[in-house]
Structure formats: C-alpha cells, structure tokens
Nucleic acid binder design. Structure first.
Length: 494
RNA sequence: GGCGGCGUAGCCAAGUGGCUAAGGCGGGGGACUGCAAAUCCCUUAUUCCCCGGUUCGAAUCCGGGCGCCGCCUCCA
C-alpha cells in the first residue's frame, strides 16, 4: 500500500517515497523549554510520535530527530525573573517535558539535540552563509540572513518577497539591511548567555539551530520535516532559505504540518493565556484520553479543545479498554469445545478492520478514520463478551477469535497509536507516572474500597438494597464507579 | 488588506462525481439488572452554509456570496 501525504511545499497530496528506502529521515521542531508543555505542544508531539510508529510499522528504518531550544529570549527572561542561570531553567523544563512525554507515550527521538551543545556547528553554518554571500555581519555584532539573496524565498508559505516587504514592520534601531532579514547571530546584552564568535560575544538566532541539527544528525536533505502549522512562516521558510542557499539541494522532501489546538475559537497559546498544561490534563484524565482525542481528529484540521471533548474521548477510551481487559475475564470462563468446524465470523471482522485501518493511515495519515474502523471491531467483540457473560461459558472458537481481536488491537492501537501501553501488557512505568500526577484527594485507599464493595455485596445478598445503594452512591461521589457483573462487582476510578 | 485552510445531524467527524450519507458522543425505545452501570439491538441528516452553473447524475466539479479559523510578530 502506498502512503500518501499532504506536502505543504506543493500544497498537494503526494505519494511518499523516501530518498533512500528503507531509511527515512525525519526532523520535527520540538519545544522551547521555558515553561510547562501544554495541549498544543502535546498534539504536535503525539501526531509525530504516532506517525513515526506508523512508518516503523511499514518497515522503514526511521531516524527521528527532535530538538530542544534551550537558549532564547523567553528562557532568559524566565531566568532573570527567578534569578537563576538560564541553563537551570532549561534543564528543569526538559525534565518536566520528559515526565509529560512518558505519561502520554511519546517516545524519545533517536537524537534530541540542544542548542547549547551545538554552538560550534551553528557558528560554522553562519560562517559558510557569510562566505557564500547570503548573510552579513553588522558593526553592532549581529549577523543576518539576506532574504532577497535567496530567490525562492516564500515558496513554502506561498508568499512573495514583495508582498512580505509591503507588510513588514520596521523595528526602530534594527541594523538590518532589509526588514525581512532574520537574525542568525545576536549580540548578547550584558548578563545574557554569550558565546565567543567571529562577530563578538553573542548567541544563535532561532532559525539557524534546526538547520545545524539536521545537517549534523541527518544530512543535507531529509525526507520529512514536521512541526505545527504556526511554524510554516517564518521559521520553516527561514530554515529552507539557509539550508538551500548553502547546499543548493532540497532541505526536506516532504513538509508535514499539524493543525493547531483551538480553544473557544482561538489558538491555544501562552500569550493568550488560554492554555491547558499536560500536567493539568493528567490530574483529571488518564494520559491516553488526550492521546485518543488527538488521534480522533485529522492531524491537519484544527482541534477544538474543550473539557466536554475530553469527556467524550474518555468514554471512547473506556470502551476500548474494557473490551481488551474483558479478555482476561473471558479466559476464566468454562470453555466449550466447538462442535462445528468453520472459522469464527469475528476473524473476518478483524481482517476488515485491519484493512480499513491501514487504508485510512495510508491516505494522508487519517487516524480518525482508522479509529472508526477499530470501533466496529470493538462492537463485535462486545457481542461475544455479552453472550459469554450471560451463559458463563465460552466456545473455544469464540475465545480464540476474541484473543485474535485483542492481538489485532495490540498491533493497531498499542503499537501504532501508542494507546493502552499500561494495559497491553502492564507497563509499570506509565502507571507510576500517572499515580504521581493524580491529586491526592483522588486516591482513596484501595483496601478500603474493596472492603466497602464487600460489605455492599453482603447487603445485596440479604436484599438490603437501600444500604447497598447508599454505598454505591457514596463511592461515586468519591470518584469510584461500581459495576455489578456476573462475576462480582468491579470498581474503577471515574 | 494579502496568503493558506474550513463550513456534513444536538455535538465531534468520515464520505471528494452514481450502492441504503462511516464511526463516536448525546437523545428516544427495548434486552439485561433488585435498581443501576457497562454491553447489545432498534431509532435519531430525504439531506450536506446560501445562490447559480456543468452533468443522465454533485455533499463531492466550476462561478459568486455569507460565515469561521490560522499565518503575515515569539509560538507545536
């Protein structure tokens, strides 16, 4: 099956063919580590983590690089306001970032470069740009990329230089030759992080780092470059300008951009203050619920975040999880040998589901459609479960088919979508992370819950239903939901 | 203002020229249950923002409106 991807550069759906199969080189822009990661960051990270897993599933040997921007104005401002060294701020938020990513199942990249570890490479890159005449140093100690020197400037974001100049804002006191020129090297002010360079003490501009990282860790041309839609201009446009000015070769063959997270019609962002941090999500929901929500929407569409959507997503998640976990109960039932031969009908549903699943992903990575296919399989699984629970027996064929369905879900939703990693099989690390993030008030002692459930069962057996219901209601208020099944009462946290 | 994208049921979201307009949430009815919850079955858009046009045939293509979002400044 051939994978088709929407390439921002061409504005069209294109067949994906790596330059050197089976190798695929991907770079995505990571985060600037000056504060907590929010749902907007989370979306981008989840999308590209899932996409990477999918490529690996297709058999590609993926080399994935995602950076940390650990020197920038915001980090410096934060450091000043806390009277700390900027590296301390960066290290703190990188550590926080890893907690968030581990919880949500975003795997580390193969290489995770930091600006502060690549200063020589960045300086070298700037020197080469100056030598080739694409950049100039000013007497003030800044270095700028000269946009008009790069004829194809604007090809990614579909803008013309003239149009950009017309709308450009001229900042007073800037030493640029052209208002569109962007800083490759910035002279440091007193007390700011600074590195020695041929142009005096300074620090790198933002757009240069990604090019330096790509050149060093992936090469001059990569297969896929990803990031949020808000990075198309100017960030990615500026990356192309630098890289292609130097090499004359395409910087990235496919450009993938994820749509932004919207809150009440506006982009979620730090500056608007309408953001929800991943940590806040985790105190209210299993991290998979957010992961599922993100994958329930096409990666290029806007995702309108709301707590109502989280609730919906949670219901869907519980439905999936339940179907998978019920396999364990099913295995404890009395198994009946199947009389008739034939293949259990569930197998054909599994096959259809997988076909739809992979067809959807092959078409511009339509995770939402792939997910819909799995929901149909879940319904069929639940029918078997219902019948088995009712009769307290299960046919050997049905049990095997159910097991095959669970395996199929392992392949699709766990291995590729990164969901259910704490269920299939138990992943202690993610459980620990989650528990640490849960508010103390939510953690009712488990042995106490078990005791209450037991007492309630005694009341039910004696038909003292008012007491039984009182216990159920009281636990519900504490966020514990009871379900009476043919195999006793189960409880779970809401 | 320029550029890019989007408008499908109460809500989210597939479908991109022709089978009965996926799937989920919510709502209604039923089965199950002591009652619930979960699950299953049935049901919930004669119609796809509006107006024209192309076509035997359009939600899907074209033209024109209206509305929404993003980018144009740091931003995943």
């Amino acid at each position: 099956m051939t994978l088709k991807l929407f390439n921002t550069l061409s504005g069209k759906l294109e067949e994906f063919v790596p330059e050197n199969p089976p190798k695929v080189k991907i770079y995505t822009c990571g985060v600037t580590v000056y504060d907590e990661s929010h749902v907007g960051h989370g979306r981008s990270l989840i999308v590209f983590d899932t996409f990477r897993r999918y490529l690996e599933h297709l058999g590609y040997k993926v080399r994935f690089v995602r950076n940390f921007t650990d020197v920038d104005d915001k980090i410096i401002d934060r450091a000043k306001s806390e009277c700390k060294h900027f590296m301390e701020i960066a290290d703190r938020y990188i550590a926080r970032y890893y907690e968030d990513m581990e919880a949500i199942g975003v795997r580390p990249a193969d290489v995770e470069p930091r600006v502060t570890d690549h200063i020589p490479e960045i300086i070298e890159l700037i020197k080469r740009l100056i030598e080739k005449g694409y950049a100039y140093a000013t007497p003030e100690g800044n270095v700028y990329f000269s946009v008009e020197k790069f004829k194809e400037y604007g090809k990614l974001s579909k803008r013309s230089i003239d149009e950009l100049i017309a709308g450009a804002r001229v900042e007073p006191g800037e030493d640029k030759r052209n208002p569109l020129d962007f800083a490759l090297w910035k002279r440091s002010k007193a007390g700011e992080p600074a590195w020695e360079s041929p142009w005096g003490e300074g620090r790198p501009g933002w757009h240069t780092e990604c090019v330096a990282f790509v050149f060093k860790h992936l090469g001059e041309t990569i297969d896929i470059h990803g990031g949020g839609l808000d990075l198309v201009f100017p960030h990615h446009e500026n990356e192309i300008a630098q890289a292609e000015a130097l090499t004359g070769k395409p910087f990235a063959r496919y450009w993938m951009h994820n749509g932004l997270v919207i809150v009440n019609g506006q982009k979620m962002s730090k500056s608007l203050g309408n953001f929800v941090t991943l940590k806040e999500i985790y105190t209210k929901y299993h991290p998979d619920v957010l992961r599922l929500l993100v994958l329930s929407v096409h990666y290029r569409s806007p995702l309108d975040f709301s707590w109502e959507k989280m609730e919906t997503s949670k219901k869907v998640y519980e439905r999936i999880r339940q179907a998978v976990e019920d396999y364990e109960t099913l295995k404890t039932l009395k198994v009946e040998e199947t009389a008739e031969g034939g293949v259990h009908p569930l197998y054909s549903t599994i096959k259809e589901t997988e076909e739809k699943f992979f067809k959807a992903l092959a078409e511009d990575f339509k995770t939402q459609e792939a997910l819909a296919a799995v929901m149909e399989l879940i319904s069929e699984m639940n029918k078997i479960r219902n019948e088995a629970f009712r009769t307290k027996t299960v046919s050997k064929a049905a049990l095997e088919a159910y097991g095959a369905a669970v395996n199929s879900i392992k392949n699709t939703l766990r291995n590729i979508f990164g969901l259910l990693e704490d269920v299939l099989p138990r992943c202690p690390v993610r459980e620990v992370v989650r528990k640490e993030l849960e508010p103390a008030s939510a953690v009712l002692d488990e042995s106490l819950i078990d005791l209450l459930v037991e007492v309630r069962q005694m009341a039910r057996e004696r038909k003292v239903f008012d007491i039984a219901d009182k216990i159920r209601d009281a636990l519900k208020e504490k966020g514990i939901v009871l379900e009476d099944t043919p195999f006793g009462t189960k409880w779970k946290r809401a």
